[in-house]
Amino acid sequence: MRIVIAEDSALLRAGLERILSDAGHEIVAGVADATQLLRVVNDTTPDLVIVDVRMPPTFTDEGIRAAALLRSQNPDSAVLVLSHYVEERYAADLIASNTRGFGYLLKDRVADVPAFLSAVAGVGSGGTALDPEVVAQILVRSARRQALDQLTPRERDVLQLMAEGKTNSAIAAALSISTGSAEKHIASIFGKFDLSPDESENRRVLAVLRYLES
């Protein structure tokens, strides 16, 4: 296959190029940032793009956003994402939109060269290669999203005020309800988030984290 590699680490990029070249693939280009990636892909139309999640200039999510853009512009583009961690939101969106010719592997898996080359071949031919950890975290995120969707509009208002650090009495005053009603809404939120009483955990903090993660 004709492959473009987008990886800001020169050492890892060279290693990937060597592994893939030795396996008979043609490396069309190796680039260090998402801007170069988009330009090279538009100019060369490779069979497969291998892209890192965190790339310059901010080293946050430039790579996977570029992958999402490539997939939206050409759904048939084969893309294999490599990362040290799981970017749940983009991974879930990419998988939900089209699993054909898509892969998401943690970089630790590259150490298993035969398995990595198998994933490359599978994605390049239109298949899917997902790291088990990616699948697990997406499932967790999906479950949390479903729990949030169960909240009533009033419970969402209460949760938002909790996220702002307001006390139960302050929440009641802001929503023009009694403190008892605010406490009942909070208890309902805990129940829907499956946050059981536990002295070792602060349910209020965990509920707010669920809200922020959404």
Rank of each mutant, 00 (worst) to 15 (best):
M1D: 09
I3V: 15
I3A: 02
I5G: 01
I5R: 10
A6E: 06
E7S: 06
A10I: 08
A10H: 13
L12K: 13
R13F: 08
L16V: 10
I19F: 08
L20K: 07
S21E: 14
I27V: 14
I27K: 11
V28N: 03
D33F: 03
L38T: 10
V41S: 04
V41G: 01
N42F: 03
D43Y: 03
T44C: 11
V51L: 05
M55K: 03
P56I: 07
P57V: 05
P57F: 02
I64C: 05
A66H: 06
L69T: 14
N74P: 00
A78W: 11
V79P: 04
V79A: 09
V81D: 06
L82C: 07
S83A: 15
V86G: 10
R89K: 13
Y90T: 12
A91Y: 07
A91D: 05
D93C: 04
L94Y: 08
L94K: 08
I95M: 12
N98I: 03
G101N: 08
L105S: 09
L106C: 06
R109Y: 09
D112A: 05
D112N: 14
D112S: 05
V113Q: 08
F116N: 02
A119E: 07
V120I: 05
V123G: 10
G124T: 07
G127R: 05
G127L: 07
T128R: 10
P132G: 11
V135S: 11
R141K: 10
R145T: 14
A147S: 12
A147W: 07
D149F: 00
Q150P: 00
T152A: 12
E155D: 12
V158P: 01
Q160T: 13
I171E: 11
A173I: 06
A174E: 15
A174S: 14
A174R: 09
S176G: 10
I177M: 13
I177G: 03
G180A: 15
S181Q: 13
K184W: 03
K184D: 09
A187S: 13
I189R: 06
F193T: 00
L195I: 13
S196I: 06
S200T: 15
S200Y: 03
R203A: 13
R204Y: 11
V205H: 10
L206F: 01
A207W: 09
A207N: 04
V208M: 10
R210P: 02
R210G: 02
